[in-house]
């Protein structure tokens, strides 16, 4: 074997590996980008209520360590001093506490109403209706000191346009479960 043929062979090998490396980049660059973006995407998705988990009327769903059940959704008609064509809506839930670490599991608790167009209403402070003493809001329930097996009664008050009341349905999101959220069906559904 002459020096020249050795040279030629190593040149061939080098060329082959260069080609392989270039092809490998096609795979490695997207993989590296995905690896870098993974945490950001996870944080982004974890902050949004994106994927609904449907809950049939009368059923309860395990969410954030507890069992959530929608007990009532009704309008409080006939109130004065509100914007025209707006209706206060009360959503009542009964939650059986499973894991009592609510300060961790219920963090970022958000109850909302969603209509057929996908518009979302958050609880309002414009309407204050008197509630019985044992009724909490989602946020106040976090600090209620509830134990395993306790049942919490939650109520949130919303202000929605009258024409939206036909299609609104309640939903609940918790930081520990995002991007999934509970989407409750009503009796009429």
């Amino acid at each position: 074997m002459t020096a020249r043929s050795l040279d030629w062979e190593s040149g061939q090998g080098e060329r082959k590996w260069r080609r392989r490396s270039l092809w490998a980049l096609l795979l490695l660059v997207p993989l590296a980008l995905a690896g870098q973006a993974y945490d950001s995407v996870k944080t982004l998705l974890g902050g949004e209520d994106l994927f609904p988990r449907q809950v049939a009327w009368g059923q309860s769903a395990h969410f954030g360590g507890s069992d959530w059940k929608l007990t009532d959704l009704r309008g409080a008609f006939g109130m004065s001093s509100l914007p025209p064509d707006s209706v206060p809506v009360l959503a009542d839930f009964s939650v059986k506490v499973g894991d009592p670490d609510l300060q961790k599991l219920w963090l970022g608790c958000k109850v909302m109403l969603i209509d057929a167009e996908g518009r979302r209403w958050s609880p309002t402070s414009a309407v204050s209706l008197k509630a019985p003493g044992d009724v909490h809001t989602c946020v106040s329930a976090i600090f209620s000191g509830a134990r395993r097996g306790d049942t919490l009664n939650l109520r949130e008050t919303f202000l929605v346009p009258r024409q939206a009341t036909k299609t609104i349905r309640p939903a609940v999101g918790l930081a520990s479960e995002r991007p999934h959220f509970l989407f409750f069906q009503l009796e009429k559904d």
Partner: peptide, 9 residues
């Protein structure tokens, strides 16, 4: 000011 869809303020 808190605003809700469909309820201008």
């Amino acid at each position: 000011v808190a605003i809700d869809p469909g309820l201008p303020k």
